[in-house]
């Protein structure tokens, strides 16, 4: 499949939005750069996942993770982590799918900006899914185990988002190790709790985020991203102890 890459400048452009609705993008030469990309197959998956209940959300994320793992991860990262590629693919090849799946796109340009030409960063569902699929499929070979890890991510989305938001945490091994530790300790819901009565803390007052913030503050004096899981786990429990009682966890470590 050949995809022409859009020229920058299409984002937040009302004319472009109108031409998308009118299906006229392909006719207008000025929207395109002189670059094209060839990809074997580019099946659709949930490009946008929000405002759903937990169960629906899990199904959609799993579909996204699995589709990306199967069809996109063997391409160069210059492609599957590139904003212009994804936007070009969505606009030029997935228009019908988008209009059908996310009819709110037609309601206004804000929705279009938020769903279709969304900035390709940690808030973008494609971006989240690509990193999840890459990290887990690179480290877990067993198929059932892999699905289990995908579910761990979905169950700890707040923590996962926090880790891929900040570059200090955004590495395959660290993300994987933290997810494993959370799963082993069974503290998923504990980490989501808000900390009360600590006026000295900033806005991110969920326990999980605060524990990660300790890793951030101490880096690189403590080079946590390079640490093996068991070593990391000791520190994790120590930092967790700053914010909650860890006496029952002690037995698990």
């Amino acid at each position: 499949m050949e995809i022409r890459i859009l020229e920058k400048g299409y984002k937040k452009n009302p004319e472009f939005y109108q031409d998308f609705l009118d299906d006229k993008i392909a006719d207008k030469e000025e929207y395109f750069s002189d670059e094209t990309v060839n990809i074997q197959s580019a099946p659709e998956f949930p490009f946008y996942i929000a405002k759903k209940n937990d169960e629906q959300r899990k199904v959609l994320f799993l579909e996204a993770f699995n589709t990306i793992e199967k069809y996109y991860l063997s391409s160069d990262r210059d492609l599957h982590l590139d904003e212009q590629f994804w936007h070009s693919l969505l606009i030029l090849k997935k228009r019908d799918f988008l209009l059908e799946t996310y009819p709110e796109i037609q309601e206004g340009i804000e929705n279009f900006n938020n769903i279709v030409v969304k900035d390709f960063d940690w808030e973008n569902y494609i971006y989240k899914s690509v990193l999840a699929a890459e990290y887990i499929s690179d480290l877990v070979t067993d198929e059932t185990e892999r699905q289990r890890y995908y579910e761990i991510i979905i169950d700890n989305l707040d923590l996962y988002n926090y880790m891929i938001k900040y570059e200090v945490f955004r590495s395959k091994q660290f993300v994987f190790n933290i997810l494993t530790i959370v799963d082993e300790l069974g503290i998923s819901s504990l980490l989501k709790k808000k900390i009360v009565g600590r006026s000295d803390l900033a806005t991110d007052t969920r326990i999980g985020r605060q524990v990660l913030f300790e890793f951030n503050k101490n880096y690189p004096v403590i080079m946590s991203p390079m640490m093996a899981k068991e070593e990391l786990k000791e520190l994790f429990v120590e930092y967790l102890g700053y914010y909650t009682s860890v006496e029952q966890l002690g037995a698990l470590v």
Partner: peptide, 15 residues
């Protein structure tokens, strides 16, 4: 001031 792992400064966070 504390400096975090990304080089960001936190003023007044260290009591």
């Amino acid at each position: 001031s504390i400096i975090d792992g990304m080089g960001k400064e936190y003023k007044n966070a260290f009591r």
